[in-house]
């Protein structure tokens, strides 16, 4: 139970209080949406947190250091961005995995690229995006977003 968590939860509870003062109906709807989306995401969250434990215990830090570490430079950046591009799921699932990799010795720019491309590049959703906006847009946008994820990662290296 973290202080951050308690503070955040308190703030949200206050927000719900304010919300219910101005509209009971909307507050109930909010609560229902919150509960439903959490419920729908539960299997994924269970899987991701399960993976975090497996990673920490079974993946040797040397391996992460070797594949995603600073010494591999561009290769680790590409691997981080590539893993993010293939993965789908909400960012809530990306953060625990990213944290595990980071504490095992991964290069922060590679992990930043992993998170950004996790959300903004979608190889799996590409056909869907192409269906909505056309193949040209889907390819251009995902390509640029991937490049941007790598660039943001590199800039992180300068900032941190």
């Amino acid at each position: 139970m973290s202080a951050v968590g308690l503070t955040y939860l308190t703030l949200i509870l206050i927000a719900y209080g304010v919300s219910s003062c101005s509209s009971k109906e909307k507050t109930q709807r909010s609560l229902k949406i919150a509960g439903l989306s959490l419920w729908r995401l539960l299997p994924l969250l269970a899987a991701v947190f399960g993976l975090v434990g497996l990673f920490q215990v079974f993946l040797p830090p040397e391996l992460i250091e070797k594949t995603l570490g600073e010494s591999s430079g561009v290769a680790s950046l590409l691997l981080g961005g590539g893993m993010g591009a293939v993965a789908i799921g909400p960012p809530a699932a990306a953060f625990p995995l990213a944290g595990t990799l980071l504490s095992a010795g991964a290069w922060p720019p590679a992990i930043a690229a992993f998170i950004v491309s996790w959300v903004s590049v979608g190889v799996v959703t590409l056909p869907f995006e192409a269906g909505v906006f056309g193949m040209r847009y889907a390819l251009v946008r995902n390509g640029i977003a991937f490049g941007a994820a790598l660039l943001i990662g590199l800039l992180m290296g300068l900032v941190l």
């Binding site: 968590g5 308690l6 955040y8 939860l9 949200i12 909010s30 949406i33 989306s37 959490l38 809530a92």
Partner: peptide, 17 residues
């Protein structure tokens, strides 16, 4: 992180409505 996750979803519900 359970409290944070609960809060995140709570806030998402509010924002969506």
């Amino acid at each position: 992180v359970i409290l944070i996750i609960l809060s995140v979803f709570g806030l998402m519900g509010l924002l969506q409505v």
